[in-house]
Simulated scan of single mutants.
Amino acid sequence: MVIELVSQAVAVLERLHPSTLLFPIKLDFRGQNRALKRHGRARSGKSVSQDLAGFVAWVNAECQRRGRTDSIPDDGRGPLTASRFRRTLAWFIRRRPRGLIAASIQYGHLHTRMLQGYAGAYESGFPDEYAFEDWLYRLECLAEDEQALTAGEHVSGPAVDTYRYRVTAANREFAGRVLTSERQARDLVGNPLLQIHHGQGMTCVLNPSTAACQLRGAIDDPLVTPDTDDCRPRCTNLVRTDRDIEHVKQQEAQLSKVVDDPLAPPIRHERERHELARLRKIVRVHGEGAGDR
């Protein structure tokens, strides 16, 4: 299982040549190199870096020749290497829906910290790449949360006070902070102020000792995360923002169509009717406190 962009890239490479390797050291379309030692060997990291440099030079030359402005800029971090694309993988794992689940399936891991096994060992550096993307993502979410609160967004649920405190304190503590190494991010994401996790129609203000869901990791693990797909309605870590309620209303509208369908099977109809009542109660309770903004 890979992300769609990788699947498309692999499909293109497979159409470009008949080799069983995506990046062979030499292409042989006519069988002229059958006597070549280690025929079919994959390209080395050094040769891939050289290819990347050549590709960048070609793109930039074409952009200049055609008067385009979308060339590939120098990011100041040195030459492009294959290992640097791990940040792209980390971005997709952290930011795309169910990205962590996809990574767990693809690499055989069960928890975020198990990603340390990627590329063989922790020395691969990938856990730090992921932690850095996690750090950036959480700061972006907190900035959005603070902006919404400042604009008057209503928040309901048992963890409201903790949510407001963490959003305000985290932005005051971490906004604008510069990290000198990616490994620092791994240490910082365990900070309690950053333990706000947004799910579908809900927000978890995580306190591992009182969480009702199945946690990913041990309670004493500083990088433990909640299972937002298994949120329990009575959990004391739960809050709902106006943005969450909009998602709940969308679910409500979809279920209303099922409940109103006279041809729906009785068992499904009864199950969805109870779920619809639960969603309507969530919207109603949230709205009842909207005047306390």
Rank of each mutant, 00 (worst) to 15 (best):
G120T: 11
G120E: 10
G120A: 09
A121P: 01
E123Q: 15
S124M: 04
S124F: 04
S124W: 02
G125H: 04
F126W: 05
F126K: 11
P127R: 01
P127M: 04
D128R: 05
A131Q: 09
A131Y: 00
A131V: 00
F132D: 11
D134I: 11
L136S: 04
Y137L: 13
Y137C: 09
R138W: 04
R138Y: 00
R138G: 00
L139V: 03
L139N: 00
E140Q: 11
E140F: 02
E140P: 06
L142F: 14
L142W: 03
E144N: 11
D145Y: 10
Q147A: 15
A148Y: 00
L149F: 03
T150Q: 15
T150D: 14
A151G: 02
A151M: 07
G152S: 08
E153W: 10
E153S: 03
V155I: 08
S156M: 02
S156P: 02
G157Q: 03
G157Y: 05
G157D: 01
A159L: 09
V160G: 13
D161V: 14
T162Q: 15
T162F: 05
Y163Q: 04
Y163M: 02
R164S: 03
Y165W: 08
R166H: 15
R166W: 09
R166C: 06
R166K: 11
R166G: 05
V167G: 00
V167W: 00
T168P: 06
T168K: 08
A169R: 06
A169Q: 08
A170P: 06
N171Y: 02
R172E: 15
R172N: 15
R172W: 02
E173G: 06
F174R: 07
A175M: 04
A175F: 01
G176M: 08
R177C: 08
R177F: 09
V178K: 01
L179A: 10
L179K: 02
L179W: 05
T180P: 00
S181I: 06
E182M: 12
E182T: 11
R183E: 14
Q184H: 07
A185C: 01
D187M: 14
L188Y: 10
V189K: 03
V189Q: 04
G190S: 02
N191D: 12
N191R: 06
N191W: 01
N191H: 14
P192H: 04
P192L: 01
P192I: 03
L193S: 11
L193G: 10
L193P: 07
Q195C: 14
Q195K: 15
Q195I: 05
I196H: 06
H197W: 11
H197K: 08
H197L: 07
H198L: 13
H198T: 14
H198N: 11
G199M: 12
G199C: 12
G199N: 08
Q200M: 14
Q200H: 13
Q200V: 14
G201R: 09
G201H: 03
M202C: 14
V205Y: 06
V205Q: 02
N207F: 12
N207A: 14
N207D: 13
N207Y: 12
S209R: 14
T210S: 09
T210M: 06
T210Q: 14
A211E: 08
A212L: 12
A212W: 04
C213Y: 02
C213V: 03
